[in-house]
Design a protein around this nucleic acid. Structure first.
Lengths: 201, 201
DNA sequence: GATATAAAATACCGGATAGTATAAAAATGA
DNA sequence: TCATTTTTATACTATCCGGTATTTTATATC
């Protein structure tokens, strides 16, 4: 437990709530795109002044990094849970398809995938965090497919690494298509087709 | 034959070559991203002044639209030729895989897919042209798959429209992955896997 | 040579951006 | 009451953006 949020003994009490600012920024980034939301806009939406934001987060990069951390623990964690759920090949793939195609939270896309797609426009801290998360996701896909192979559910016509990359990119594609307005049923149909390669002998 | 490029009888002769400006702009947009290249930068790279560019193209939107037209007839036409080549299901899919995975011109991605991905950042003319080309591409995919179905090469477990959308998106995904630094062999492996769904009964 | 014309180059405009200097306000402690 | 501390709010900087007004230059015609 850190004392970073300990209220100082003296001085004007702060009205800014860092968590609510992060919520506002996360939803704004998530709904449109980090590259299309300025710090000015975030301050206005959150009802705080720019110096307050900069004192808390240091820079735009610091803010977007904090937002990404929050998104990872609030939203991305669910995807990791599906992968580590141990529901077997078919059950896990179905859960991933459900999540990508029908979860209402993915209706406007995935903030992480948006950041990854526009990686070159991010600051160094945020970009590094994006790459960390990307590596962790790939590792999770690899572990999942390796377990499926070990239990004989999945033929070894393809390497686990290639399958993991393929699986991850197909999920990302499906969610990105939902963000661009594609109907969930259509997205589900295409993702199911793409992942059918894991169910053939 | 229009007389739009007819040299006027009097006045200072023009030093600006519209075609070379378009080449410069196309390559700059193509190599990085239209949203990351300013008109200032294009003028500097092309060695012309801003008023010259604006007299020729009217606006940034006019320039990017002209660039997209040029790209469509110089590069995209090749993809349409592959689709209309009549090489049958297997031959055409293989040609598409070759194009997306190994054509050196797709090494930094496809300008059209970059524009489509950042559609909301484009001007109205360019955006409309992107949508036209997207519709034309979808129609070409549909015609190709319909012909394959008519000749019995492809089972009817999936609608032609859904297959066309799927095929187009997989090609786009493969080329986008190459743009983000993925090895061509890896891209080929994944695209081949994705398109294997067209070869199963 | 004088004039008309068209393109060029320079310099500018208004607006948006990330980031900051400065001052006012609200609390505590003496 | 008065000084100290911390956070606020306002106003500002420098830079870049798309786009343009203005002036200069280079040609053809008279």
């Amino acid at each position: 437990m850190s004392d970073a949020d300990q209220r100082p003994a003296r001085g004007r009490p702060r009205t800014m709530n860092a968590e609510s600012v992060l919520d506002v920024a996360m939803n704004a980034y998530w709904q449109s795109d980090p590259a299309d939301v300025s710090v000015n806009a975030i301050c206005q939406m959150a009802g705080i002044s720019k110096p307050s934001l900069y004192r808390e987060f240091g820079s735009e990069d610091g803010l977007s990094r904090a937002v990404l951390d929050r998104y990872a623990e609030q939203v991305l964690s669910e995807m990791f849970e599906i992968l580590h759920g141990g529901k077997g090949l078919r059950g896990t793939l179905d859960a991933l398809i459900d999540f990508a195609s029908d979860d209402p939270r993915m209706e406007t896309g995935c903030l992480f995938y948006k950041m990854r797609a526009g990686k070159h426009r991010l600051g160094p801290e945020t970009r590094a965090r994006v790459e960390e998360i990307d590596a962790a996701a790939r590792a999770a896909y690899v572990a999942f497919l390796q377990a499926a192979r070990d239990s004989g559910d999945w033929p070894d016509s393809l390497s686990v690494e290639a399958g993991a990359k393929y699986l991850g990119e197909q999920i990302a594609l499906a969610i990105t298509q939902r963000a661009s307005g594609e109907e969930p049923a259509r997205v589900r149909e295409m993702l199911t087709l793409a992942l059918s390669v894991f169910s053939r002998s």
